[in-house]
Design a protein around this nucleic acid. Structure first.
Lengths: 347, 347
DNA sequence: TTGAAAGCGCTAACAG
DNA sequence: CTGTTAGCGCTTTCAA
């Protein structure tokens, strides 16, 4: 017995209250120049009729909707979920609502022009500003402000929060070396991505730093997908002098490594150490992860940045580079100092 | 260097292509009555100008937006996340986009009238239909279809996907009994909620079924919050003949039980077995959970139902009651290992 | 095959 | 303090 009744409009409210639509609009927008009793009467009618203002109409006409958009490839991913948690935290403490937009498929999101499309879709209509996660695009046209989390391009033309991929990889490799590993495999990511390139550089530099030999056959080209990573891991694990540890590139690749290890009868972590990146492991799933609370922090900081932007409070710095320790380059506004401090002390 | 340029409208496209807005609108909506070359020219201009149609304006005028709304209290919750994953799966296989709406705060969502507000907000404007998670309301007014996941009311006046709370509780209690427990505490949920009532009934019936005494002092009134559960657990654990196991009502309550157990110096699961409900535990966090993949399935099924409704394909059944499976996760005391093992292999 | 024009529900001048 | 009115960008008759 679902009600299909035509939605009640501001017109209906006006009629029922015996006033004009503009008067109703006034009380809706909390303008001051309305008589006390008129206002009360209208509020009553609104409650009575169960009126909810039409979001589409309102954002078409008015200045802001108090809505923030989050454009995220696939909300089922651990990576996305952790970022969403952070956004959520910041939203909870603000008076903004959150619209998460997703196509449900990470593949569909993979072009710059589609990214632009989503940004326009939200920011030119119903949202006051947008957070976009892991964009490929270098630039966006938009009516409202944009902040990106973990963009693939190194120096995007919009405010952004970056993972410190280089330092993260260094820490991961350092960890493996300290475990006693001397032959560490590396599954590289898509070479056109900044993140992949910097992780690889972190790998090389750390080996050199610790005086370990740089065996190029230990570096195989992956593409951040599970499928390809299975093959890469096979290649590494069946070579003559096999590595005892593998840096898996990212979370998807790590899953691939596990798959391959299982096929080949390797025990993890007994026979093989695996390091992921970007991943939030299930219990016992990976035996090391480099990012955790960190992703949440990225989401939170990005949201706080966006709210500042929407409220026209200019940011002193538009790029934040975050690490397992939040690393901030250049000067920044007080609110982010605090985030920095919190995160550091939480670790 | 962010672009603040005014968004390009259908007017701009029309002007640039030397046609009227209606013609542009026609190609946008894939009407057939447009000349081949006109269409191509317009499509070209659209690409050139980077035009994206205004979502607000379009959904104000047109019939559908190909957007599904998901109203969910707090996207940071494991409960919400699992459901979202399922929705996401279904969305990925459809040609709908997904808008997740949240206020970021589970508290703000807790009244029927607010729920109605969110439904109207989305369904009277930008979405073609809405999925609402765990609503309290019995009924909704809405322009578009609604499907609810895990509603609190037993027989809501809209299509819904229910957890089988009764059977879930029975399985949990049965599991505890099979572990050898004879005194099992029960922290009840908010009595006005169907879910709470059915879980309690499952508890009682199972004890009776196994010939165990029904000690009313083992049932304490909680409200599905962590805070209150701490007190409940205290009460249970400090009574003369204390229970050796506790059914914690829901995930929040389970956290409360853990908190109390820790305060009192109890070891879980050494001294005490705890069963949660609704929860996805972190590693070793709870030693038993009833729901996992199940929540994801609920989300997926709800989305599939909604899409059917939007496409005007009538559903044969408007209520799906889904079976809860008992899934054991995390640590468990050695004396229970055997039973744990059996249960696992049964799945 | 196309254009002109009427509105969708709302806000923001501008009058009164 | 309140009403009238002009659009926001779009879809959809209705004519041409």
């Amino acid at each position: 017995m679902r009600n299909k009744k035509r939605a009640v409009t501001i017109q209906d409210v006006a009629k029922a209250a015996g006033v004009s639509v503009s008067t109703v609009s006034r009380v809706l927008n909390e303008k001051v120049d309305v008589a006390q009793d008129t206002q009360e009467r209208i509020l009553d009618v609104i409650k009575q009729l169960g009126y909810t203002s039409n979001l589409a109409a309102r954002s078409m006409r008015g200045r802001h909707s108090h809505l923030i958009g989050l454009i995220i490839p696939d909300i089922g991913f651990p990576y996305s979920i952790e970022i969403m948690k952070g956004v959520n935290q910041a939203i909870a403490q603000s008076d903004f609502g959150l619209m998460v937009y997703t196509t449900g498929d990470i593949q569909k999101n993979a072009t710059a022009s589609l990214e632009q499309h989503y940004v326009s879709l939200l920011n030119n209509s119903i949202t006051d500003g947008v957070i976009i996660v892991a964009p490929i695009a270098q630039d966006f046209y938009s009516d409202g402000p944009i902040v990106s989390v973990d963009p693939h391009k190194m120096k995007p033309n919009f405010p952004s929060v970056h993972a410190n991929n280089y330092e993260g990889a260094r820490q991961a490799i350092k960890y493996l070396i300290e475990l006693g590993h001397t032959r560490i495999g590396f599954i590289a990511g898509r070479p056109e991505l900044e993140s992949a390139e910097r992780r690889l550089r972190g790998y090389r530099d750390t080996l050199v730093e610790f005086g370990l030999p740089l065996d190029e056959s230990l570096i195989v080209q992956g593409d951040f997908t599970q499928k390809i990573a299975v093959g890469c891991a096979h290649q590494l694990l069946t070579m003559e002098n096999r590595p005892t540890a593998i840096f898996a590139g990212n979370d998807q690749s790590a899953i691939g490594v596990y798959e391959a290890a299982e096929e080949l009868g390797f025990d993890i972590p007994g026979d093989l150490s695996v390091v992921g990146f970007d991943n939030i492991p299930e219990a016992g799933y990976l035996n090391l992860t480099t990012i955790d609370q960190f992703l949440t922090d990225m989401g939170r900081v990005a949201t706080e940045m966006l709210i500042q932007l929407i409220n026209q409070k200019p940011l002193e710095t538009l790029t934040y580079r975050m690490q397992t320790e939040l690393i901030i380059r250049g000067s920044c506004s007080p609110i982010f100092q605090e985030a920095l401090h919190e995160t550091k002390s939480a670790l």
